[in-house]
Design a protein around this nucleic acid. Structure first.
Lengths: 134, 134
DNA sequence: ATATGTGTTTATATCTATATACACAGTATA
DNA sequence: TATACTGTGTATATAGATATAAACACATAT
């Protein structure tokens, strides 16, 4: 089963960074629970249309952060992660992404009101009108 | 007068890319009208805390896109830009910035309430309390 | 044993960022 | 009117980060 990862080869953000970042989210959000066997570096390389070495680097980086554990000849597994780090990471990731987007939008000349409107509309796509939420 | 440019040395996005991207916005949005004399590469290098060569590269890239015109010994000036390209670029810039942030939000697994809270916080960071805006 | 799946190492190309020394344009001034 | 000065951009060489290919080594099941 392929991982829900979306990378862009046109983006200025380096490939290994995009992949690592998204895998952190998957792990911290619990979508990849501790013990899960990750795809082999070759599988993930195909899936993300990049080289095996790049994936290898991602796994190494995640291992150095204690998020995964890799064993030669066997595979790479998700490690146990303290609850503390979970919420913290997701919160900061979203906060940074939002800030960056807002900076970008502001620079285009839009004012606070317009930025809010644009974003409000976008949010409705992500959280499709749950009637009872109001 | 320094340009309203904000770059991050920690970001995964390359320096020259951050700078070029923001200068495009300034030009396309009309905040830097045609004929404007841009800061010298040394000034902008100091302002952005990067090397002269990096700024030079940015100016070269913008020149190759027809956005600026540079003359040795004199300086770099903003060129005339067709109205067509303006709206187009700004629209796409906003659209892409939003898209990226939303992808990140989806992947985080945070709920609507939390996302909205984070958004308000980020919005305040980017638009520091302009009292009269309401 | 050996076949097939893992991860690993080594060498290489390209991209990003830098420092240093150079060349041109305009201005002051002798 | 020369000429030196000070500001511009420019060229060359180099270091580090990013991405790759190809050959290697380990683990497990036949």
């Amino acid at each position: 089963m392929p991982l829900p990862i979306r990378i862009s080869h046109d983006s200025a953000e380096p490939l290994y960074h995009q992949i690592a970042s998204q895998m952190r989210s998957l792990i911290f959000s619990g979508q990849l629970p501790a013990g899960t066997l990750l795809p082999s570096i070759r599988e993930l390389a195909v899936e993300t249309e990049c080289s095996v070495i790049t994936i290898r680097r991602v796994y190494q980086e995640l291992e150095s952060e204690g998020l995964v554990r890799t064993r030669q000849g066997t595979g790479t597994f998700v490690s146990e992660v303290e609850a503390d780090r979970r919420g913290q990471y997701q919160y900061e990731a979203v906060r940074d992404a939002l800030k960056q987007a807002l900076e970008r939008i502001k620079m285009s000349g839009l004012g606070e009101r317009e930025v809010r409107d644009v974003f409000e509309q976008a949010l409705r796509d992500v959280f499709p009108s749950e009637e009872g939420t109001r």
